[in-house]
C-alpha cells in the first residue's frame, strides 16, 4: 500500500526551483534512504514532504491512512535548542499534541504510551531527566520517542546520525531496523552510507539537476550509485 506519492514535482523556495520533475513513492513497510550532496535539495525535500513548504509544481499525495500531520518527524538536533530547560517526558509528550482533541494537557493513555515508548528505547529510567543534560545518543532517542508519539506508520529522520559517534549511530540504526521490522515505514536523509547499504530497500539520490529513485540493488548498479560508493570508499 502506498503511503506517500509525489508525481512530477518541482521543489524549491520563493519561486526558485532546486529539484524538477521528481517522482517517487513510499510504500508501507518501506525503508527509504535519501542521499545527495549538500545543496542538492534534501532539506527542501524534507520540508515539502512535511508540508512546511508547498511544492512549486505537482502534488504530494498521502494515502493508506497516512495524514500529512501524522508523520513522525525527527529533525536534525542542530535545529533544536540544546540549552532548553525541558524534561524527557515533556519532550516526548509534545509529539502527540497535534493529534489529540483535548483542550488542555495529556490523557493518561497518552502518558502510558509515552512511558512504554521511552521504555522500549531504553530511556525508561530517564523520564524526568533534563533534555539538555543528556548525551547525544540519549537526546536522539528522546526525539525518536517524540516522533513515535506523532505517528503509527511513518518515521521521517533528517540526518539522525549527525554528531553521534559510530557506536551510538549503529545503536540507533539497529533500533530503526527493529521498528521497520515491526511494520513502521522509514524515510531517512543521511550522509552515512551504512544504513543505505545495509538497511534501505529503496534509495532516492538527489543531485544537481538529476536524481535516482529505485530499489537499492538497482541503485548500487547504476552510475550514480557507483559514484556514491566510490566517494564513501566502498568501491571495492
Amino acid at each position: 500500500m502506498t503511503l506517500i506519492e509525489g508525481k512530477d514535482l518541482t521543489l524549491g523556495y520563493e519561486g526558485q526551483g532546486i529539484i524538477s520533475s521528481l517522482s517517487f513513492s513510499v510504500g508501507e513497510g518501506d525503508y527509504l534512504c535519501i542521499v545527495g550532496e549538500n545543496g542538492s535539495g534534501k532539506s527542501t525535500f524534507v520540508k515539502t514532504v512535511l508540508g512546511l513548504v508547498e511544492p512549486l509544481r505537482g502534488d504530494i499525495i498521502y494515502s493508506g491512512g497516512l495524514r500529512r500531520n501524522a508523520i513522525g518527524y525527527l529533525p536534525q538536533v542542530s535545529g533544536i535548542q540544546r540549552d532548553f530547560p525541558s524534561s524527557v517526558m515533556e519532550v516526548t509528550l509534545s509529539g502527540c499534541l497535534g493529534r489529540h482533541r483535548r483542550l488542555f494537557g495529556y490523557s493518561s493513555a497518552e502518558k502510558q504510551r509515552a512511558l512504554s515508548i521511552l521504555g522500549s528505547l531504553g530511556m525508561g529510567d530517564r523520564i524526568s531527566a533534563s533534555f539538555q543534560e543528556l548525551s547525544g545518543g540519549q537526546q536522539q532517542r528522546t526525539l525518536l520517542a517524540r516522533a513515535l508519539m506523532a505517528t503509527e506508520k511513518l518515521l521521517f529522520l533528517d540526518e539522525p546520525s549527525a554528531g553521534l559517534d559510530p557506536r551510538t549511530s549503529s545503536e540507533l540504526y539497529s533500533i530503526l531496523r527493529d521498528l521497520n521490522a515491526s511494520g513502521i515505514t522509514i524515510m531517512m536523509v543521511t550522509h552515512d552510507i551504512h544504513p543505505a547499504l545495509n538497511d534501505a530497500r529503496t534509495i532516492l539520490h538527489l543531485s544537481h539537476g538529476r536524481y535516482f529513485f529505485g530499489p537499492k540493488e538497482a541503485y548500487f548498479a547504476s552510475d550514480m550509485g557507483k559514484e556514491f560508493l566510490k566517494e564513501a570508499g566502498h568501491d571495492k
Binding site: 520540508k47 512546511l52 500531520n69 509534545s94 493529534r99 483542550l103
Partner: peptide
C-alpha cells in the same frame, strides 16, 4: 498562557516539528 501552555511549549522548543505535526 495556561490554556495554550502545551502549544506554546511545543512552538518554543521545536517550531519545525510542531508545524509538521499540525500545530
Amino acid at each position: 498562557y495556561l490554556v495554550f501552555y502545551h502549544q506554546i511549549y511545543s512552538t518554543t522548543f521545536d517550531p519545525s516539528f510542531a508545524k509538521a505535526t499540525g500545530i
